[in-house]
């Protein structure tokens, strides 16, 4: 099983349980269908960063209060603000299947999430290589909603990275990203390499989560 399939299975809540053939076929055909319509788009901007204390972060002119983010960014002096999306066609596709085949909607949703993460990982690896040449090391992505990094900051990231104009990514009054299969994140840039930084799922404190990677 490739990584994104494994991730999709995890998002579907299977934990360590095996997936039967019918579901596997559904997952494969969902990936195939998504491959035809996703529009991978990403945009970012780099800002000056300060971490004055363990509760606060300042990126450009934006002040953020978050212990978890401050911890993630400690030792960095610049930050990448990014927005990424798979595009609006994914939403149309899911809406369409919600009328005819609900099981596929749930699987499409998991597969799309896995594709978006995979895309971001690949993109970050490339950026990491480029930044290494300039003497910078990248921290793991950190998104609003992780720990105490409040979802309200999504708006600011979108504005600072100019995502509406560049990639068509915007937000509703209720703080929901549109298109729905989208991500905002902050990536710290440091001149020092930090060993073994915990990333993504494993960094979360909610250890009893049914979606946790390598969960019980």
């Amino acid at each position: 099983m490739d990584t994104r399939t494994k991730e999709a299975v995890r998002y579907l809540g299977y934990g360590r349980h095996a997936v039967d053939d019918t579901i596997m076929t559904l997952i494969e055909s969902s990936f195939a269908e998504l491959n035809k319509i996703v529009q991978y788009r990403i945009t970012y901007r780099i800002f000056e960063l300060e971490v004055p204390d363990s509760d606060n972060v300042k990126i450009g002119e934006l002040k953020i209060r978050s212990k978890n983010l401050a911890k993630n960014l400690r030792g960095c002096d610049q930050a990448v603000m990014l927005g990424a999306t798979l595009g609006i066609e994914v939403d149309f596709l899911m809406k369409r299947y919600s009328l005819t085949e609900m099981s596929r909607v749930v699987v499409l949703q998991a597969c799309a999430a896995a594709m978006l993460e995979e895309y971001l990982d690949k993109w970050q690896k490339e950026l990491s290589g480029k930044m290494r040449e300039k003497g910078y090391y990248l921290r793991p992505r950190f998104s609003p909603g992780y720990g105490d990094f409040c979802m309200d900051y999504q708006k600011d990231i979108l504005r600072m990275a100019d995502t509406a104009r560049r990639i068509g990514l915007s937000i509703t009054d209720g703080n929901m990203l549109t298109p729905s299969k989208s991500v905002t994140a902050v990536i710290g840039m440091s001149t020092e390499e930090t060993a073994c930084h915990r990333a993504g799922c494993e960094a979360c404190e909610k250890s009893d989560c049914m979606y946790r990677r390598s969960s019980v």
């Binding site: 299977y14 039967d20 019918t22 579901i23 559904l26 099981s103 749930v106």
Partner: peptide, 11 residues
């Protein structure tokens, strides 16, 4: 039984 299977049955 997991959610996708529950829904496949429902479908």
């Amino acid at each position: 039984v997991f959610l996708p299977q529950l829904l496949m049955s429902a479908d």
